[in-house]
């Protein structure tokens, strides 16, 4: 953004003020996320920068909270690091357990949400689809309805049918919450989809499944993967239904953080948060790359 030649002094002042305002807002957006990274290497059990950290004293930094992620809950954390130690960590460490739960639930929910969501998005984007707007509203509504209401409803229903306090119950709940994201991303990819490709494929003798696999799928794959990643993150991050539906057995990372924040706040939470931020950065990069690829594929070059 350049200042035009004819700008008056007042406009010049405003221009730089404006840039300053924008910089502050970007700082507001990113600062909290950046700040937890150095804090997680704190050698002291505090949530704030110590004097030593500000002076870049290497003594003030440590990996103890990362070690704590692995050790917390283990039967014998100081034993020799042999196969028993690893088994102990894998089975007993609270955070490791939570991570296993989180990833298991998230992967299952993602597969379900992506399969159901893509199918529905294909239907929704057909020009002859009846009741399109009503059905779209229904499919997006899990994103809009307050989570407490969703979780309450599911709590009663899942208790009745015996799904409360089971992995399957949480997987189904997370599938429900992930679906809107899959619908939104896949329909967005299908907007620019050239429907004559389908007719071309059919006229060349392909049946429905072949057309989907060889023509539609490669074109909407970026959208499907973005949708799947959105659903994955939603599940990984979801806590309200877990609070209502899960037992100690099914504790996920957010559930563990929740009790950490409420009961015994320690920088271990910041270490976990840092790991989660790293995961977010990785997923965000993937989605961005996919989005660009999809735009290229559809012939919509970046302006």
């Amino acid at each position: 953004m350049k200042l035009p030649e004819y700008a008056s002094p007042l406009e010049r002042v405003w221009h730089y003020t404006y840039l300053f305002i924008c910089a502050s807002i970007f700082l507001f957006l990113i600062a909290p996320i950046i700040i937890i990274i150095p804090l997680s290497f704190n050698a002291e059990p505090y949530f704030t920068f110590t004097k030593g950290m500000l002076n870049f004293d290497p003594e003030a930094f440590s990996f103890r909270w990362y070690a704590d992620i692995v050790r917390n809950g283990m039967a014998a954390p100081d034993a020799v690091m042999d196969s028993n130690w690893w088994a102990d960590m894998w089975n007993n460490a609270q955070w490791i357990r939570a991570m296993r739960n989180s990833f298991f639930v998230a992967i299952c929910a993602t597969i379900l949400a992506t399969a159901l969501g893509t199918l529905a998005a294909l239907g929704l984007s057909r020009p002859e689809m009846p009741f399109r707007s009503a059905i779209t509203s229904l499919l997006i509504s899990p994103m809009i309805v307050p989570l407490v209401i969703t979780a309450t409803g599911m709590f009663f229903f899942y208790s009745d049918v015996g799904l409360a306090k089971t992995y399957l119950g949480i997987i189904l709940a997370h599938t429900t919450l992930g679906i809107p994201f899959v619908i939104i991303t896949v329909t967005a990819t299908l907007v620019g989809f050239d429907r004559s490709l389908i007719r071309a494929s059919q006229s060349l003798g392909a049946d429905g499944w072949t057309t989907f696999r060889k023509v539609i799928m490669p074109l909407i794959l970026p959208g499907m993967i973005s949708g799947a990643l959105f659903a994955f993150v939603t599940s990984l991050d979801e806590i309200v239904t877990v609070l209502f539906l899960a037992d100690v057995e099914q504790r996920t990372i957010p559930r563990q953080m929740w009790s950490g924040i409420r009961e015994q706040i320690s920088p271990t939470i910041l270490a976990v948060a840092t790991i989660l931020v790293a995961i977010s950065i990785f997923l965000l990069t993937t989605v961005e790359l996919l989005r660009r690829r999809s735009e290229r594929l559809r012939g919509m070059t970046a302006r």
Binding site: I30, P32, I33, I35, V233, W258, I265, I269, V277
Partner: peptide, 15 residues
């Protein structure tokens, strides 16, 4: 990035 970061991470960060 904030959009993709966990809600609990952001809340913890603000604490």
């Amino acid at each position: 990035l904030p959009f993709w970061t966990s809600l609990l991470v952001r809340t913890t960060a603000w604490i």
